[in-house]
Design a protein around this nucleic acid. Structure first.
Lengths: 205, 205
DNA sequence: GTCTATAGACGGATAGAC
DNA sequence: GTCTATCCGTCTATAGAC
């Protein structure tokens, strides 16, 4: 039982360090120091350093697949949309702002995102994961949302993929800025607020 | 004269490697191998490794300050706008697409951008540079452009900062995607094309 | 499972021949 | 200015006591 705990602590410490310095620039000693053990002890839990990365990525992926609305929700699914029939533009804005607050603040989501940003040009697997998690899945979610809002006559009928891009890509950029400069969160949240309001205004049906 | 050449080759090789692997994960041996000399020879040109980074960053910065439209242009400057009086929305779209093609393809601009992305959470100086070069300056440029287009009655009068964000932030995201997956350039350029067209459509005066 | 000790490779950096 | 040779520190990883 001690074992499980230390193993998890190693993964947490590794994610902390990988998210800022990247995988290669993080040493076993740094991880060990953060956990409070000697570096040799880490090898009781992981065969080698790359196994730590593998498990860290798996941990991030599991959290993503279990909790992320972008990984699971489908606007074609009546189960997902059944409680949304009476909602207006403001309600959808609130819904989205709730998701944004979550992914800005959840430490695993945030560090996972930072890790992928740092490793995106070096590690082929993480490069693909970066495109999937922080572009494709988000674009898919919001394209679905916008198609749904067009059907509901809340938004005007136009190229939903471009509309989704115009809606979500400024937000993902602001979230990255917030990862880099957390002190600017309030300023950024206000920009996002105004952006969403304006979007629903210009594309209102 | 040999000296100047080798020094420049070292900086080029270093930028190549830093842009993919980051500063700390790049070794003097790697740089030396890329240049075709022994690693000890590098110390004839630079005191230590951090001096290489310093010079690489200076090189990127010099190129930026000399060539980047975002660093220099001001839409309040009559010198800059004097040949633009007869232009319509399509002309401005073409102008912007020209800038985009340049910053996607210019190798120094591209590698500098990638380096800043990789180092943004670790190196305070590069973090600030990332915010300035790949957010603030771009936002400033397009806010200026949109204010100008509002004055010219090409765009409707609204919150120009939000409009600028909706215009340029999807594009910066696509450029990052293009840095990561250069094979998708055509697909991405088409998205940018449609995005710009749609933007001028919905905000047309 | 964690520790100390250490192996062996590689990191940045220097000395000195040419 | 570039080379070989080398120093010393840190890296990943292993061996073996407890």
């Amino acid at each position: 039982m001690e074992q499980k705990n230390t193993k998890a602590e190693i993964l947490d410490a590794a994610l902390d360090l990988f998210a800022i310095n990247g995988y290669e620039s993080t040493s076993m000693s740094q991880i060990a120091k953060a956990v409070g053990v000697r570096k040799a002890s880490i090898y009781s839990h992981f065969e080698n350093k790359s196994e730590i990365l593998k498990n860290v990525v798996q941990m991030v992926l599991d959290g993503y697949n279990m909790n992320s609305i972008f990984a699971n929700a489908s606007w074609d699914d009546s189960e997902f949309t059944k409680d949304k029939s009476g909602m207006n533009a403001d309600d959808y804005a609130k819904l989205v702002k709730g998701h944004i607050r979550y992914i800005i603040h959840d430490p695993y989501v945030r560090k996972g995102r930072m890790l992928l940003v740092i490793e995106q040009f070096r590690n082929e697997e993480l490069s693909q994961l970066q495109t999937k998690m922080n572009y494709e899945d988000i674009m898919k979610y919001f394209t679905g949302m916008i198609n749904y809002l067009i059907k509901q006559d809340i938004l005007v009928d136009a190229n939903s993929e471009i509309m989704a891009a115009q809606f979500c890509l400024p937000i993902t950029t602001w979230i990255n800025l917030c990862d880099r400069e957390p002190d600017r969160e309030n300023e950024i949240l206000e920009l996002i607020e105004n952006h969403i309001k304006k979007f629903f205004e210009v594309y209102h049906s």
